[in-house]
């Protein structure tokens, strides 16, 4: 076992555990009040103009129709085309798009690498660079690295020189871009300097996932995987977790138009929440740390407030 093994395991485990824990925490957060924002992508026949079932007179007498494909299509456009940034912040798109595409391609590259290892589709030793899967992965990594470097440079410069971004950029923003940029720079140099980059990457993954010796890598390869390990370790603690939290911001807030009909799944949870004790201190609330939400909402205003009012 080498140090790189440990670094990678640590990064991967922290990544999986923290991402999972964060997802569970937010998924089990209390049911919030409705706060949807139109267009809501699943409104059947209405999403294209931002309409809702509330447009129907006595909507509760009609079946509620959800078009889940609408959600998928909207998310697809958001993820693949970065539609929001394209429409509302075009100049940033030219940095953000390559930056994100590079990440997508890198993830695809890694998944394909692992799959071909699992299914034994490719030779892992040197000298098979004409193998079609290796060629394909090679191209993927090239594009990912180039996009990543371009994206990182554009975003870094924008954060330095665009006054809109500069004021809101903290040390971590620059660090994140540099870290991700460095990942691509190392993969780029690795591709440039070695004929067998993909096979070496195979060797690395084979080694770490079979808990065995990793065939020796060029220095840049080690740097790349140390950086990747650190990135995996670090990512769950940053705002970049938006890559999965976006599911919640869209599906659980922006598009949450679920009516509170008898038998609805959140009724029970809501009843529990209404029985939470309240501690707010302003006199008009009349809380004492034991009175519940429901009691406070059903009580008249406290006497002191009456005098003021």
């Amino acid at each position: 076992m080498e140090l790189i093994h440990l670094a990678f395991y640590l990064g991967l485990i922290i990544f999986l555990v923290i991402v999972f824990a964060k997802a569970i925490k937010i998924a089990t957060a209390p049911v919030h009040l409705r706060w949807e924002l139109y267009p809501v992508a699943h409104e059947k026949g209405k999403a294209h103009y931002g309409g809702s079932y509330l447009e129907e007179f006595e909507w509760w007498t009609k079946p509620l129709q959800k078009n889940l494909l609408g959600e998928v299509w909207t998310m697809f456009q958001e993820i693949v085309f970065l539609k929001g940034v394209w429409e509302h912040n075009r100049s940033l798109w030219f940095g953000s798009a390559p930056f994100h595409y590079a990440l997508y391609l890198y993830v695809v590259f890694t998944i394909l690498t692992l799959l071909s290892l699992i299914f034994g589709l490719t030779p892992t030793i040197e000298g098979f660079s004409n193998h079609s899967i290796i060629k394909f992965l090679n191209v993927l990594l090239w594009i990912s690295s180039i996009f990543g470097i371009i994206g990182a440079i554009v975003l870094f410069l924008k954060r330095i020189f665009d006054s809109n971004l500069k004021l809101y950029s903290n040390a971590s923003h620059y660090f994140n871009i540099l870290l991700i940029g460095a990942l691509y720079v190392t993969s780029f140099i690795w591709l440039l300097s070695s004929e067998n980059t993909i096979q070496e990457i195979f060797g690395f993954y084979l080694g770490v996932f079979s808990f065995s010796q990793i065939p020796s890598l060029p220095i840049v390869g080690y740097i790349h995987f140390y950086l990747l390990s650190f990135f995996l370790f670090y990512l769950p603690f940053t705002h970049m977790t938006h890559f999965f939290m976006k599911y919640f911001t869209y599906h659980k807030v922006r598009w949450d138009d679920e009516p509170n009909l008898p038998g609805s799944k959140f009724r029970k949870k809501l009843m529990e929440q209404l029985n939470f004790p309240v501690q707010w201190s302003a006199p008009h609330i009349g809380a004492d740390g034991t009175k519940t939400w429901l009691i406070i909402a059903s009580s008249p205003l406290p006497t002191k407030e009456k005098k003021n009012g």
Partner: peptide, 22 residues
């Protein structure tokens, strides 16, 4: 207990803004 009404969207907003100014 005190803010179940909007806690989930509030925390999401606090923790995931990319400061992109879009």
């Amino acid at each position: 207990e005190n803010n179940w009404t909007f806690l989930q969207p509030l925390v999401l907003t606090m923790e995931h803004c990319a400061k992109c100014q879009t």
